[in-house]
């Protein structure tokens, strides 16, 4: 069943296109609630600023990499994402939430689902990057070059290796990354979420 785009998809598209006007609108209209929540929950303005920037980058990446389609109001989606990121931050530092604050918005199930999905994808991508860093320098370099140039003949030429070796090596490097991710306990817990 196809789900219709929410009118607030405008914000996602604006983030995707790096439109300053839309980003400014998001700050002007939606960030005050987030700042208020974080300041009421063991945080300060500077931490609120970091969380808002982190969440905007998560949305940007999801829009670029996964064609993020909004099915709920942006206001609730954005607030809930910031809230979850902040509560994770508190948990990481062994601090607990004090007050729930202004979350009695009309947050419905679709918003929760959308936020869960965004956070899950973001956690997976962070894990992929973490595992990528564990590959050998040669593998990292070959993969970076392969995906940036997107033409294996040119890649081989640039790295001064044969075309056949470049292709074989690429498959082995992505294969190695596959094994690293699969054997990570974090991946198994994310997979079951």
């Amino acid at each position: 069943m196809s789900v219709e785009n929410h009118p607030d998809q405008y914000y996602i598209d604006g983030i995707n296109q790096n439109e300053s006007k839309v980003i400014r609108e998001i700050y002007d209209q939606f960030s005050e609630k987030v700042i208020h929540f974080i300041c009421k929950n063991n945080g300060n303005e500077s931490q609120a600023s970091d969380i808002i920037q982190e969440v905007l980058i998560i949305i940007f990446k999801q829009a670029k990499n996964n064609n993020l389609t909004l099915t709920c109001p942006f206001d609730a989606y954005f607030f809930l994402l910031c809230k979850r990121r902040w509560l994770n931050e508190l948990k990481k530092n062994g601090r607990t939430q004090v007050t729930s604050g202004s979350e009695n918005l009309s947050i419905v199930d679709t918003t929760f689902e959308a936020v869960e999905e965004t956070l899950l994808l973001s956690a997976k991508e962070a894990l992929f990057q973490e595992m990528f860093q564990q590959l050998s320098d040669a593998c990292q370099n070959l993969l970076k070059t392969s995906f940036k140039i997107n033409n294996m003949e040119e890649v081989a030429k640039k790295l001064d290796i044969s075309y056949a070796y470049a292709r074989k090596k690429k498959s082995l490097c992505v294969g190695k990354l596959t094994e690293l991710v699969r054997s990570s306990p974090k991946y198994n817990s994310l997979k079951n979420d």
């Binding site: 983030i15 790096n18 300053s20 980003i23 400014r24 700050y27 600023s49 808002i52 920037q53 905007l56 980058i57 940007f60 990446k61 670029k64 990499n65 991508e125 992929f128 990057q129 990528f132 993969l143 970076k144 995906f147 940036k148 997107n150 992505v174 294969g175 990354l177 596959t178 991710v181 699969r182």
Partner: peptide, 30 residues
Amino acid sequence: LYKTLNEHLKSEFENTEDLEQFEKSVSSIS
């Protein structure tokens, strides 16, 4: 997983410059 990682790496390295530009805009607006 191999297919997913392939897609992930493709987007990650194709969008590096766009992401840097976006981070710059957000930081300045913030």
